[in-house]
């Protein structure tokens, strides 16, 4: 038997009250694109559904001199259309454009995408590569969680039961820095990724001054490619350097075999996807 309670909220304060009251029993529902399939397949039951879809105060993309702020109820369609993100976080726009299909993107939110914490969550690699910080909130106040501490396992996060995601902060990278995201799926639309990679590069007088690499679908959580980052730091940018460093990405990942691809295939293509993301940015300079 399916059995759910329901609370619908329109302000953040009401949402936090409801979370405080329900704690472990609470299941926030934003776009419902993950929650409804989970209900149907009885992955969740006996919960209080807290509808936050109409929480308009958390739907925004704003900027200050140093940072970008994305409210958790911002939809993937909003990300795709944002001029602020096109300028400062193109990798996130790439991810939005390749996310599901246009209709699903109207419902799916960025908060739901990272709270669901799928290893294949498409906004996660760009957010990792862009050094994002998740701002969570509960009745007791706000907490900042660096994105590389946010994902703790498959469908698990550092959020406490009474907490929700308020917004995501992204530091603005210098103007001479660029980012890119590549998703490899079984087809172009409506595909869950086999491997995805986001990269951020800052090149100054031909040298790599800053580099961030992050991958999806190759470990229990989205992961950083720290070995490759270390190999690249301070090097002269060239296709050869990129190719050599990317070939070591297997040291950063632990893919599994599943219905979409084998472990070996993922190991092999991960280096190719990382190489292409970096070379694409290099091509912009």
């Amino acid at each position: 038997m399916k059995s759910f309670n329901y609370i619908s909220v329109v302000t953040l304060n009401q949402a936090l009250e409801a979370l405080q009251q329900e704690k472990e029993n609470a299941c926030l529902v934003a776009g419902a694109t993950n929650v409804l399939p989970f209900i149907r397949y009885k992955k969740i039951n006996n919960k209080t559904l807290i509808n936050i879809r109409n929480l308009k105060e958390l739907r925004y993309i704003q900027e200050t001199d140093e940072k970008i702020f994305i409210g958790s109820l911002t939809t993937i369609t909003d990300l795709e259309k944002s001029d602020i993100l096109k300028k400062y976080a193109p990798a996130l726009v790439d991810a939005a454009r390749n996310f599901a299909d246009p209709t699903t993107r109207n419902s799916a939110t960025i908060g739901g995408n990272i709270a669901n914490a799928s290893p294949a969550a498409d906004t996660a690699p760009p957010l990792l590569a862009l050094d994002a910080v998740v701002v969570s909130v509960s009745k007791s106040g706000e907490r900042k969680i660096p994105i590389d501490e946010f994902f703790t396992g498959v469908n698990m996060t550092a959020l406490k039961p009474e907490e929700m995601i308020k917004e995501i902060e992204i530091p603005k990278n210098p103007a001479n820095s660029h980012s890119h995201f590549i998703k490899l799926g079984l087809r172009n639309a409506m595909a869950i990724s086999i491997v995805s990679a986001a990269a951020v590069l800052e090149i100054e007088s031909g040298k790599i001054k800053k580099v961030r690499i992050a991958l999806g679908s190759v470990a229990p959580t989205p992961v950083r490619g720290r070995t490759v980052e270390k190999l690249l730091m301070g090097q002269d940018f060239s296709d050869k350097v990129i190719e050599k460093a990317s070939s070591r990405i297997h040291e950063d990942i632990s893919p599994i075999s599943d219905i979409r691809a084998s472990r070996e295939y993922r190991q092999t293509v991960a280096s190719v996807v990382v190489k292409r993301a970096l070379q694409k940015i290099g091509g912009i300079y």
Partner: peptide, 15 residues
């Protein structure tokens, strides 16, 4: 005003 897939939307969310 926006296209959605009704199978992955709660009826209650349309209230």
């Amino acid at each position: 005003g926006q296209a959605v897939k009704s199978c992955i939307t709660l009826a209650a969310q349309a209230d």
